[in-house]
Design a binder for these strands. Sequence first.
RNA 1: CGGGGUGUAGCGCAGCUUGGUUAGCGCACCUGCCUUGGGAGCAGGGGGUCGGUGGUUCGAAUCCACUCACCCCGACCA
Length: 574
Amino acid sequence: MRYSKGFIYTLKEEQKEASIASHNLLLRAGFITKLASGIYNYLPTGLRVIKKVSEIVREEMNRAGALEILMATVQPSKLWKESKRWNDYGKELLRIKDRKGNDFVFGPTHEEVVTDIVRKYIKSYKNLPVNLYQIQTKFRDELRPRFGLMRGREFIMKDAYSFDSDEEGMDVSYQKMRTAYYNIFKRCGLSFRSVEADTGSIGGKDSEEFMVLSSTGEDEIVVCDSCEYSSNIESAKSITKNDYIAEEPLKKVATPQKQTIKDVCEFLQKEEQFSAKALLYKNENNEVFCFLIQGDDELNEIKAARATNSVELTMLNDDEIEKAGLLKGYIGPVNFPNKDIKIICDKRLENINSLVVGANEKGYHFTGAKLHRDFEAETKDLRVVKEFEFCPRCKNGKLKKIRGIEVGHIFKLGLKYSQSMKASFLDKNGKAKPYFMGCYGIGIGRTAQAAIEQNHDDKGIVWPISIAPFEIEIVSLDTRSDEIKKYCEELYSDMLNKKLDVLYDDRDERAGIKLNDMDLIGVPIRIVVGKRNFKDSKVEVSDRKTQEKYLIDKDDVVEYVSKIRDELYKNLQI
RNA sequence: CGGGGUGUAGCGCAGCUUGGUUAGCGCACCUGCCUUGGGAGCAGGGGGUCGGUGGUUCGAAUCCACUCACCCCGACCA
């Protein structure tokens, strides 16, 4: 591509709509442009990146035996009513009506459609397993779109769906996808790791997320420093060791004006770890729960929702607490005044012999409270794990927290959709059975942007070669020298003939502009032709990442560059 | 949805408090000269319903009301 004909328009200034580097760089380098909140156009260079990521995904999916299809983006509401998600998906689902007033949705995901396709054709176990995938634009009306392609409302996603005749088959399909995902992200040049995840509203049993490691990531990950355990904070577990405290009798004590854990503990001269706080939540059916956790712990709302079979939990506000007959600041499990509210206790409290808890009486707390002696409650894992706690897998390693960008997610769905949508096949015995399904997503644009977040410097993007818009860039610094122009033109057409992926900056611009644009756009291998070196029959070849420069004889450039290219690819081999 | 903020040329901004010429600056863009290894210089030029609607006023970018859009912080997701 000639730069002058390439529709490449860079911006010198920081873009105020972008608050993280990768978003800012995508805009400044002219890869994308915003159309509306969370909705972007891909310009020629941006599209080239999207296509390269897509192609890697496609190759690995095909290698894993999946088949590419393309499903409709606009889907009839009927299927969503069958799966019950017409109600459950909420406002994120973009609902539209046709001219007759019939309800449709713009697909945010395709479990319903793909299940409909498969149930139509696959009636026999003999035709299973099957894995269908597509790469396509999705729409989710996010509450808060952010960070450009990182969390757009409209975005390009690869979604795959596996169908098996039994659970073992589903496990095999899942493992194949897992391997494919490792290959894909490795080939994209990303530093990533897979972590255990909560299955969320999509449902199902096992689930892993693929996280690109980055301090700007929106997800918090817990990893073990000595084994392979890693998990999203949402689902992370840990082994905690409590200090010992001797059993004491239950005693009511005055705690005037003291409501917070910190104030109460300070006043009573007790450590916060030997106190328990009570948090009140209601779920989507307005059932109210009281969660009791150690004073210095934090409630994990995902775990809490799971423990109560709730879809969504929201904290009670002050009015609602009062209406429930409780006293804010003094709520505790002993003599709990409202029998309709179920108390669920974090299992960590089982090991504490003496707790400070609210007395449900203004200005009073209990000391010495003990679970199963002074109050009863079901126990569950409810807390957010903390750094330096022990690994639940190897028991010895310490946990640490890092941040990541979720670029892929794989699930075992099980029978969730096949049952609700009555999608079944006949087994060996002629008996109808629902398919065992799995679903597997990759955010294509998010992957591209995550690569920038992980690979950039103060001058611009440093693309991994496999997903760069171009692999090689020729920059002519002296467009008016006939000799140099002739050389560059010949070099360019020679490289095109050799099928090299090259951008040729033929613009009649000053050196500074061209060199800065080159750094900003981030093409990995650069060839700079200027008269300073050309008089000695040399051109400069440099590496975007290391900034190392080499003077190469002008007739050896193609060969030299091809060699570097192969080396760069070698580092990304699976 | 709750909290905070911003809308003036393609991008980045000033002007608004205290209403009053033809709405201004930098970058980008066009023409000419000059310049060519790190975003040059000089001269000339094009581009705006000041987010929208309504109001107050002799007069509104500026004051008032409503409204829309966008951004940032929290709960959701690829």
